[in-house]
Write a protein that binds this DNA or RNA. Structure first.
Lengths: 220, 220
DNA sequence: CGACTCATTGACGTAGCTCAAGGTATGTGG
DNA sequence: CCACATACCTTGAGCTACGTCAATGAGTCG
């Protein structure tokens, strides 16, 4: 039974060699640059060879919503043909230097139509993405901030709590749609219970079992 | 430029005859029945011949979130292979009597893999669904309740304001994730400005231009 | 060492929730 | 056709979770 994910990586790894053989443009993006121009419809699809990108939207109120992270071995954005209004608000920036294979939509269509395994994987990717969005829309929105925070930390730790979570509190709050202050308050509560320790840009989960207790059942 | 939609209908109409020729089970669902058992992973995919279904989730707090409506000529749920935890919370019920063609996942896979136009349409459907979810996650969540209500009414009217919107206020509030009381307050404000009139189970938009003024730019 | 960015905590305001009470259409059985 | 029940809708009062603003501390880097 699959749980939502915020980081997409490796799900197109099986097509690595295939992608390399097909017509494409090899590209690099420097840390901090945008994978496509904000305010423009997205014209290209990237297979990520290395590095990490972040996908988010800035609301006119000044608040930022982070949707997902995309690492090596995945495709972003998802293949599709039509332009949606909301895409103009979305931004994808490189968190690190990146190497990618860039495909035009017609190039990707040719692959999609001739490679059945690829078309199946595109659909699986969409199902995964929908799942992450549904989790937030039908579930997280109705949880208290502490439960939301616990759910997120549990999912980010993803069964490896000893590794710690290397994100700033601002990123965590933007993933959750909470204010930074409210996130700090929640983390303080978790710290007092001995569940996590916090440091600059890093968070360690000391008591995964107690964290799981605070999560809602949809998360575990 | 496409805006989000809450009602899916007709997007697989072009495959009507094709679906009829392929192996399937013809089924009827009585008004009020569930298209699949709540709490069970979904095992079948339906092409809707007639009637209307509603897809929603009930949160443990007692609040209900309506995700979408699905009418004649569309496929629901989207074709996919893997089970996600969140699906167990989702319910799809028939709002009216329904006639459908039911496909098993292997049956649908066979069609998906042999019919390129169909696989393209499946991806388009997913892009549309993602768009509706993104609109809410990255945009509506940060709007005030009045803007959210205005956006929803604008999108539901979908360019035909004279037709009116035939939904109860409870359904509208469940689509928005607002309380029924808060929705009523928002509608009162719109009524006072002469933008809408309300009646039992129906809402008419008297001044579409003024409504559009209240909407956020992502909506129009 | 100075200038960042990141993290923490307190004070205060408010949007939207719950609870509660009442009003108004629609449907049903006598 | 009326009496009654059952939605559905409206409005007020009070509460609270979370947002904003502000001040301060604590790592990190050139």
């Amino acid at each position: 039974m699959l749980t939502p994910r915020y980081l997409f990586a490796g799900d197109f790894q099986a097509f690595h060699d295939y992608f390399c053989e097909q017509p494409h443009l090899r590209k690099r993006f420097a840390k901090g640059s945008c994978l496509w121009r904000p305010g423009q419809p997205c014209e290209a699809i990237h297979y990520i060879l290395s590095g990490m990108a972040m996908n988010y939207a800035d609301h006119e109120s000044g608040r930022r919503k982070i949707i997902s992270f995309h690492g090596a071995g995945t495709v972003f954005p998802g293949y599709h043909q039509t332009d949606y209004r909301i895409e103009l608000s979305l931004v994808t920036t490189a968190l690190t230097d990146m190497e990618v294979l860039e495909f035009t939509i017609p190039q990707f269509r040719a692959m999609f139509e001739s490679n059945t395994a690829l078309s199946e994987q595109v659909v699986s990717w969409y199902a995964m993405y929908v799942n992450r969005l549904l989790f937030e829309t039908v579930h997280q929105e109705y949880n208290s901030s502490l439960v939301r925070i616990s759910n997120l930390l549990y999912l980010l730790a993803a069964g490896q709590p000893e590794k710690g979570i290397e994100m700033t509190q601002e990123e965590l709050s933007d993933l959750l749609g909470l204010s930074r202050v409210q996130l700090t308050r929640g983390l303080s509560a978790l710290r007092q219970r001995g569940i996590v320790t916090t440091a600059r840009g890093r968070l360690r989960i000391k008591d995964p079992a107690a964290l799981a207790q605070l999560c809602s059942s949809e998360t575990i």
